[in-house]
């Protein structure tokens, strides 16, 4: 299987009060197409930073991030935006829906940014909301939706441009167990459809959904069944 995400000796350094902090310190790993990968670690372990690097939200201090075989270090801001828009879908712990837009419009937004025609946009948005089981809430604003529903809208939005990769940062972190289960089942369904899923969590119950769990501590991989560690 080919790798959709490949990290080669990736480092991310933050300067905090003149001191250099390695959020990610020499990580090399690859994510195969169609895989359901979970990155586990305590808070501050660098797992979210790692996800941001995979999602082209941030550039590594050193090392390489390849998405679909494309070396992202040489790409411009605009080209990175294109990759985020077309190849990657984000699901955040805080849902991050646009509060002024309805559920339906939130799902439409990535397609609008891509320039998808209105009719196609509307058809796809409705379809996704139906898949997520929240078609009835299409015209409600995020503030009128429960956390679980908001996260389902967020997943629908992440899938709008039919991305290859779904990056989820603690998607159930703010949800009760039941809503969390619904959300995880929806993500699993997408993985079964062929979407590569990378999920960051510290919750072992959530990690059970994944076929491969990578553990990270202090910015370094401490366990990865995909490769043999020294």
């Amino acid at each position: 299987m080919r790798a959709v995400i490949e990290l080669v000796n990736v480092r991310k350094v933050y300067r905090i009060g003149g001191e250099e902090v390695y959020a990610v310190n020499g990580v090399s790993m690859s994510v195969r197409k169609g895989e359901f990968l979970c990155i586990m670690g305590a808070s501050g372990s660098g797992k979210t930073t790692l996800l941001s690097l995979m999602g082209c939200l941030d550039r590594p201090t050193s090392g390489k991030v390849l998405i679909d075989g494309i070396d992202t270090s040489s790409l411009s801001d605009r080209e990175l935006t294109d990759i985020r828009r077309d190849k990657i879908g984000f699901v955040f712990q805080q849902y991050h829906l646009i509060p002024t837009l309805t559920a339906f419009e939130n799902v439409e937004l990535p397609m609008l940014l891509k320039g998808v025609p209105k009719a196609e946009r509307e058809r796809r948005a409705m379809e996704l909301l139906e898949i997520m089981g929240i078609a009835k809430a299409a015209n409600r604003k995020p503030s009128e939706l429960s956390g679980g529903m908001q996260q389902r809208v967020a997943i629908a939005r992440a899938l709008a441009n039919d991305p290859e990769i779904l990056l989820c940062d603690e998607p159930t972190g703010n949800l009760d167990t039941k809503s969390g289960e619904v959300v995880m089942n929806l993500i699993e369904e997408q993985n079964e459809r062929g979407v590569t899923v990378v999920l960051v969590t510290h919750d072992p119950d959530i990690a059970k959904y994944a076929e491969r769990v990578v553990r990270i501590r202090d910015g370094k991989i401490v366990e990865d069944p995909g490769i043999k560690l020294g």
Partner: peptide
């Protein structure tokens, strides 16, 4: 600010 970050994450150009 946060909203702008979300817009950028889901594919909005700086010019947008």
């Amino acid at each position: 600010t946060k909203e702008i970050g979300v817009m950028m994450a889901i594919g909005a150009y700086r010019t947008t």
